[in-house]
């Protein structure tokens, strides 16, 4: 079996720069800069990344930012709350489309 997601592949992310290296360099420089302490702390940024990783359902990102959150000093309660925030937004984003459904149904219905 050769699963599409293999966590060991994450370490090869840098290999994306073997082609068109100047773009990869720009991306990784910017990426690394984004996660440094700023108006938000490294820990807060890692929690945001963890939430987005769940919303985008990227298993690489979930593994990477679970480790990052722990290494930046978050505990499992805080990380679970971040995932709930992502879920709430995803759920809300789905539910709010019910308004569109209702509008369309009202136009069609008698």
């Amino acid at each position: 079996m050769n699963p599409y997601f293999d966590k060991s592949e994450l370490k090869k992310f840098g290999e994306i720069g073997k082609n068109v290296p100047h773009l990869a360099e720009k991306f990784f420089d910017w990426y690394n800069e984004v996660f440094k302490d700023g108006a938000l702390s490294e820990r807060e940024k890692a929690l945001i990344a963890l939430a987005v990783a769940h919303a985008t359902q990227c298993p690489y990102c979930i593994d990477a930012y679970t480790t990052a959150c722990l290494e930046k000093g978050s505990d499992l309660d805080q990380m679970t709350e971040a995932v709930h925030v992502a879920s709430a937004i995803k759920g809300g984003a789905c539910l709010i489309h019910g308004v569109q459904m209702r509008g369309h149904a009202e136009r069609l219905g008698m």
């Binding site: 702390s41 290494e71 930046k72």
Partner: peptide
């Protein structure tokens, strides 16, 4: 690993 001392 532990977090960055200065950051936390």
């Amino acid at each position: 690993l532990p977090p960055s001392q200065s950051s936390i």
